[in-house]
Design a protein around this nucleic acid. Structure first.
Length: 112
DNA sequence: CTTCTGACTGAAA
DNA sequence: GTTTCAGCCAGAA
């Protein structure tokens, strides 16, 4: 997989864009794929910047390791993220994805 | 320059 | 099972 040798953010965006529809991933998985397994925070922080990016980044598919919609609070509407996930066939309850392991998409394992 | 914060994670108690 | 602590990095004040 050829990643852009630009800023760390672009790498994050690229990976997030690679997330298949109906699947979800975690900040740590992305961070680890980029070689910064302990920089998951920066990934999440990059998501915040993604909101200002012209490129559409499916940040709604990025959750924490618990499968909880930690970032829904940062969306235009707190329900946008949940509804969007449900629209892709991902059941969400109490800000938490049901069977998140089933929908989990690890770039290190799936994408390789 | 220093300090703080954060859409996180993993280990330790 | 829960709660707490430390580490990591980029940007803003």
């Amino acid at each position: 997989m050829v990643l852009k040798d630009g800023s760390f953010f672009e790498n994050v965006y690229e990976v997030v864009k690679l997330v298949p529809e109906g699947r979800v991933t975690s900040y740590g998985a992305i961070a680890r794929y980029l070689g910064a397994s302990r920089s998951a925070r920066v990934v999440g922080w990059a998501m915040q910047a993604a909101h200002t990016m012209l490129d559409q980044v499916p940040a709604h598919r990025v959750l924490n390791r618990q499968g909880m919609l930690t970032g829904k609070q940062h969306y235009s509407s707190p329900t946008e993220m949940q509804e969007r996930l449900e629209a892709e066939g991902i059941p969400v309850k109490d800000d938490q994805v049901q069977n998140h392991e089933q929908y989990f998409w690890d770039p290190n394992t799936e994408l390789l």
